[in-house]
Amino acid sequence: MSDTDISLPGPTTPPPLRRLATRLFTTLLLFWLMLNGSLSPATLVTGVIVAGLIAMVFARDLSFLSGFNLTPAGIGAAFLFIGYFLKELVKANLALARLVLTPSLPIAPAIVKVRTKLTDPVGRLLLANAITLTPGTLTCEIKGDHLYIHWVVAKDTDHEVATQEIVAGFEHYLEKMYG
């Protein structure tokens, strides 16, 4: 999932390995239990052993929570982010439905360049994904601090205006989650 083209600024203070391993272990175990839908001893023991081994080997690699700001503020922002995201997803689909059902197909596409303040790779990944699922925008490429966005109905191709229009809404929450 990590991509060689996403150039990242080197982390100033790398988080301790033990914390990364613990977070990866918890995520893996939770997914394993959800997949099995049971808490029987056999399931638990298998899950703990396998998740433990994977966490020990891959602790240095990225996982969902590795850069997450695990504080009440960060978790609160995560819930608000999900709510905002679902709202935008529904809006995106209604706009799209209106577009494809209009006989004249009124689109005005452009690829615009926007800038992000986020530095955490997982934060950036979530930003790119969120942009892709929201009204009329699709992330095409990430180079350094810039994202290139395909916009179905481009309101303005100016760098600053597009950044404000597309990125600002999500970045507000992601900065608190992965700040």
Partner: peptide, 14 residues
């Protein structure tokens, strides 16, 4: 949709 990018947009969101 007229090109591949717009098709991806329509496909992925819906």
């Amino acid at each position: 949709m007229p090109d591949v990018y717009n098709r991806i947009q329509a496909g992925t969101k819906a």
